[in-house]
Design a protein around this nucleic acid. Sequence first.
DNA 1: ACCTGAACACCGTTCAAGT
DNA 2: ACCTGAACACCGTTCAAGT
Lengths: 182, 182
Amino acid sequence: MRADAQRNYDRIVEVAREVFREQGYDASLDEVAKRAGVGPGTLYRHFPKRENLIDAIMQSWVDRVDEAADKALAHEGSPRDLLLAWFEQYVALISLHKGGPAKITSAMCDDSSPIATKCQALTRATSRVLERLEAEGALREGVDVVQMCRLVGGVATVADQADLGTDDVQPLLGVVADGVLR
Amino acid sequence: MRADAQRNYDRIVEVAREVFREQGYDASLDEVAKRAGVGPGTLYRHFPKRENLIDAIMQSWVDRVDEAADKALAHEGSPRDLLLAWFEQYVALISLHKGGPAKITSAMCDDSSPIATKCQALTRATSRVLERLEAEGALREGVDVVQMCRLVGGVATVADQADLGTDDVQPLLGVVADGVLR
DNA sequence: ACCTGAACACCGTTCAAGT
DNA sequence: ACCTGAACACCGTTCAAGT
């Protein structure tokens, strides 16, 4: 990549991170381009779809997912406590930006999505938690990873769109946990 | 209301029902106005917010909600069967139009929403089902109606946005049912 | 090879003019 | 009292011209 192209790419990603943090993933791309000091065409050359830009600003995010799973797994306590701890981390991770829960949960299992690798990071981390529970025999029959991601993602989506607080979300996650555990 | 105003109102609602069925609740209001043969200003006079229009086309829908609850309650079977039957009806009812699950579930409990009465119809019907289960002692402690609507609404939202089929939705509803039942 | 920015299509919203 | 439709602001997308 040419030097000026690289510079523009970096600036766009940097600015997008800022704009998305302020306004959510549905923020205007025009404003991103404007703040980054590039023409709208330049933004489109680098990121043909909005999801490509979202994917780019999520680079370091994958590490945080793995760390969060480590942290939840280190947690001592009942299977239910472990599961709830992970659910909370999960919701927090996909709710960093407004609109995130919907975008990420919709892309789940869609390998053609630009953010497919990010979704895979989530399912991989969730698998680790599930394997632990499975080994302890705490899991119901026929529960699989994707189902769990969709359930927790659904809760996060509703919470995101209805602006629910932790007090409202916690009980919902509790129900999902009870439905998944033996 | 003046005769021509009433006529325009009716035509807009009729056309909106058609357009929303084809393209979902996020369809262009411009197209609704165009197809109805009115200026955009006329549409705005009658329906200042998109939700007001959605509310209008949902008039007869309330009856269908009550009928669906009757039907589920008539269903003989285990508490789990009853609950799952209702969940399926619930998802079907709010998924009639693309974008419906998200709009309806977001407005849940928001009395200032233009579609507040529709949400109340849903919680009222769900209450009837829950009371039956409560009487049979089949319900867990601390489960309330709004939680259930949000959980099932969350599942429906994910299914709607990710274009999931019944085969994918069914197991999710099963988990929620298990989490809610004793 | 990459960038710019004008241009286009589309959408929601407002409002002066008309009946 | 109600309707019309031009006008505005905004957004995503494309592409010819420029470096």
